[in-house]
Amino acid sequence: MLGILILPASASQIWEGTGRIVSGIGEGGSVELQLEFDGEIVKSLSGPPLDGIINREPSLNGVIKTKTATWQIERCGEDLCVNLQQYNPQQTVFYRLQPKK
């Protein structure tokens, strides 16, 4: 079961991993993603562009909406699960990220 996203408040943290394209262009393919969390600011260092503020309201837990995509980010065990819905091209990607060591 997916849990609530909890990140350190003071230090930035980098998470990285591989994702699977589950629908749309390139379905079945693998893609890489690296995200940096600095408080509530989330930026992609590699992969699809993201520079946003994570919304932690109960009704939108771990959701970032941009002009090009919706990112749902949740804790799953020791990892982060990221479900990315891109609008153009229409594509859904599921990532499982681990903290960078």
Score class of each variant (00 low, 15 high):
84 L>R: 05
58 P>M: 11
77 G>D: 01
48 P>V: 09
64 I>A: 07
2 L>R: 12
27 E>K: 11
64 I>G: 04
95 Y>D: 05
40 E>T: 15
81 C>S: 10
76 C>T: 01
88 N>S: 14
84 L>Y: 03
100 K>D: 11
11 A>W: 00
24 G>M: 04
62 G>W: 04
100 K>T: 09
6 I>A: 14
36 E>N: 11
35 L>W: 08
20 R>L: 14
73 I>G: 06
59 S>Q: 15
73 I>F: 06
51 D>W: 11
2 L>M: 10
17 G>T: 06
97 L>N: 05
39 G>T: 05
18 T>V: 13
67 K>W: 05
33 L>T: 05
96 R>T: 15
89 P>Q: 01
83 N>F: 07
87 Y>A: 09
9 A>F: 10
81 C>W: 00
41 I>N: 12
36 E>V: 09
95 Y>N: 05
65 K>P: 00
61 N>Q: 14
55 N>Y: 08
25 I>R: 14
45 L>S: 02
31 V>H: 02
49 P>F: 12
53 I>R: 15
58 P>G: 10
80 L>Y: 02
50 L>E: 04
76 C>P: 00
74 E>N: 13
79 D>E: 14
26 G>P: 06
70 T>L: 06
25 I>E: 15
86 Q>H: 07
49 P>L: 11
66 T>E: 04
19 G>E: 04
29 G>N: 11
71 W>F: 11
71 W>Q: 08
28 G>S: 06
3 G>D: 13
72 Q>D: 05
70 T>H: 00
57 E>A: 13
97 L>Y: 04
6 I>M: 12
92 T>V: 12
93 V>L: 03
61 N>K: 10
100 K>V: 09
61 N>P: 00
71 W>I: 05
59 S>V: 11
35 L>S: 08
31 V>Y: 00
42 V>R: 03
75 R>A: 08
80 L>P: 01
34 Q>I: 01
101 K>T: 08
63 V>G: 02
63 V>D: 02
43 K>L: 00
73 I>M: 10
19 G>A: 02
55 N>W: 09
30 S>M: 11
76 C>G: 00
8 P>T: 02
43 K>N: 09
